[in-house]
Amino acid sequence: MTVLGFSTGLDSFANPTEIGPLYPFVGAEWFFVLLAVVLWLLWHVLQIRLENRDNERAVQTYERIGLDRVMFYGGSADVPSDEEWARREEQRRRVQTPSAGEPSSDLDDPVEKLPPVPPGRNDG
């Protein structure tokens, strides 16, 4: 049997009425609290930077590809290519000013009428 000659806190529960703190490193509580306060404040700094960067990238993306394109497709993950967007705009124009003989319901069901959107992210 080996007796361990080191303990970070308690080494016996034989007399529970005399036991107070159960945790190790009694006396260092102030240090744990200080460390946690620093981590808390650091977390806020990092979160603000992260959110600022995300917003800035989003704004730049929307400026580059056009907010209307993003909004129409519900996000920047699958925005249409330039060719696809031009075709779509042309269809919208035709709907707004239908010429004789052309159907006026191209946008009734975009999922049916339009070719699939090219996959892939386009967030700059």
Binding site: D54, N55, R57, A58, V59, T61, Y62, E63, L67, V70, M71, G74, G75, S76, A77, D123
Partner: peptide
């Protein structure tokens, strides 16, 4: 930002 709000707060990076 206004454009982020209009596009949707999940629209960039996060997805639908």
């Amino acid at each position: 930002p206004a454009s982020v709000e209009a596009a949707g707060l999940d629209a960039h990076d996060v997805g639908d």
